[in-house]
């Protein structure tokens, strides 16, 4: 994987609106953003109700993923271009889940909704309907997904990349600063984790920094490209952004997203926790 396989520019997207075999899919943190205006022809996936199991805490099962994509009118051969608000956090989360279930032609719109809006490009409230398909997913590729026991075992030997803000890492706050702080889990981070906030990988307009800047960023923070990596945040969406950077843009092989992230780890009984800055 490398940047040109993964990212498309807003110019490319604009030229390819309405092209057969290309499906634009919006996934936002603010699940009402699409309804106020979206890229022409784009469909919406709601991450809270459609990208996770509604009873257990988990991502979709293979069957649920097949049902979702079939209902949305996405075929196995379609090129799916994901984009969203808040610097593509949830679009990256959807990207990771689409990869997990083996969707092959997958792109991320660099800069997402923010760059599109700042550029003054067209948004529409037109209703988009697609004919349902029969989508076939692959078995989940757990080479890109970390579970809690692996995280504990990774302490001291793998790259553990905590992508939350420095104040969340040190344990000063429990959630990003645009959310209330009422949380039940213990503050802090996984011992031996390095703190490289996801935001350092993005420019102000939401686009990803250059490969050169990204390599330097991780190297300076003590990232060892020869070791396997687990990235985590609070609920697994910001770490998907970093997973895209490490696995898809920079092409490091063994990189997993820990979607349980701090809301799971910080609630486990008896696991080691470190507090304070590094």
């Amino acid at each position: 994987m490398s940047r040109q396989d993964v990212l498309v520019t807003a110019d490319w997207a604009e030229k390819n609106l309405g092209t057969d075999g290309i499906v634009f899919v919006e996934v936002d943190e603010d699940t009402t953003a699409y309804d106020g205006g979206h890229i022409p022809g784009a469909i919406k996936i709601n991450w809270t109700t459609e990208l996770q199991d509604q009873v257990r805490r988990d991502i979709l099962t293979k069957e649920q993923f097949e049902q979702l994509l079939s209902a949305k009118g996405i075929s196995n051969d379609d090129t799916v271009v994901l984009y969203g608000g808040n610097n593509n956090w949830f679009a990256a989360y959807a990207y990771w889940q689409f990869k997990l279930y083996g969707h092959e032609k997958l792109k991320l719109l660099d800069g997402g909704r923010k760059k599109w809006e700042l550029d003054g490009r067209t948004l529409t409230t037109d209703v988009v309907e697609r004919t349902p398909t029969t989508y076939k997913a692959k078995d989940p590729d757990n080479a890109i997904r970390a579970f809690r026991d692996e995280v504990v075992q990774a302490i001291g030997n793998k790259n553990l990349v905590d992508v939350r803000s420095p104040d969340e890492f040190s344990g000063k706050i429990l959630a990003p600063a645009h959310l209330p702080q009422e949380q039940s889990q213990r503050p802090g981070h996984v011992p031996t984790a390095i703190n490289i906030p996801w935001s350092k990988a993005a420019n102000e307009d939401g686009t990803f920094k250059s490969d050169e800047e990204l390599r330097q960023l991780y190297a300076e923070a003590g990232y060892d490209p020869n070791k396997p990596t687990i990235a985590y945040c609070r609920i697994g969406e910001r770490s998907s952004h970093t997973w895209v950077v490490l696995h898809e843009l920079l092409g490091y092989d063994d990189v997993k997203n820990y979607d349980g992230s701090w809301t799971e780890y910080g609630s486990l009984v008896g696991v080691p926790i470190e507090t304070g800055a590094k």
């Binding site: 603010d30 808040n86 000063k172 706050i173 990003p176 600063a177 209330p180």
Partner: peptide, 23 residues
Amino acid sequence: DSTGEFTAEVVSSATGGYRFFAA
């Protein structure tokens, strides 16, 4: 934050409003 590091981002409301929970 005080070092210029990004902490959070929101989109302003219809009346231009924003809100952060900080420290």
